[in-house]
């Protein structure tokens, strides 16, 4: 039904855990992740879908969570940076980010990692231009782009062995 409502009870699965909560219709998925679910790994920066710091995976596709109303995520599967580790161990990609020196201040890294995980899921053997294009929506002001690309490449190569 289409009644007019200003808060909505939504159900979503975040990092494998089902959550049900009332959300204000004018709050974004980013607001709800950070403020209501206290998953502060997802970062807030530009709020116009340009920087990618708030990148999460929504039903298997990466989005800028600052541009998704929380209510739009009703019944969705959401993965944030907190959901990338496996059994308490960092993922090979997370480890590669550390090994290759892809992390300086770290503020963009959650978004970079979620985007890079999605990129590898879709394209297990990306070329350098494909990585650069695929991650262009994630700004890094420390300028770790080269190292991030190397980390993604190395992870892909390792997985292919």
């Amino acid at each position: 039904m289409s009644e007019m409502i200003q808060t909505v009870l939504i159900e979503l699965t975040v990092n494998g855990r089902r959550r049900a909560l009332d959300v204000a219709v004018n709050h974004t998925l980013l607001d709800v992740l950070r403020d209501d679910l206290e998953l502060t790994g997802t970062k807030e920066c530009c709020l116009v879908g340009e920087c990618g710091a708030c990148t999460v995976s929504l039903d298997g596709r990466i989005v800028d969570s600052c541009l998704v109303l929380a209510v739009e995520a009703d019944r969705a599967q959401v993965t944030t940076v907190e959901g990338l580790a496996v059994d308490g161990h960092v993922s090979p990609l997370q480890q590669a980010f550390l090994d290759k020196g892809a992390v300086q201040c770290g503020f963009c890294i959650p978004g970079q990692l979620v985007a890079a995980h999605a990129l590898l899921a879709e394209n297990p053997h990306p070329t350098v231009p494909e990585i650069q294009e695929g991650l262009a929506g994630n700004l890094c002001r420390c300028g770790c782009y080269q190292q991030i690309t190397e980390a993604v490449l190395a992870t892909a190569e390792e997985a292919a062995r």
Binding site: G49, G52, T55, L58, I62, V63, D64, L67, G137, N138
Partner: peptide, 9 residues
């Protein structure tokens, strides 16, 4: 059009 994130929405 925009980044991957934008094109996905």
């Amino acid at each position: 059009v925009g980044s991957v994130q934008i094109r996905n929405r």
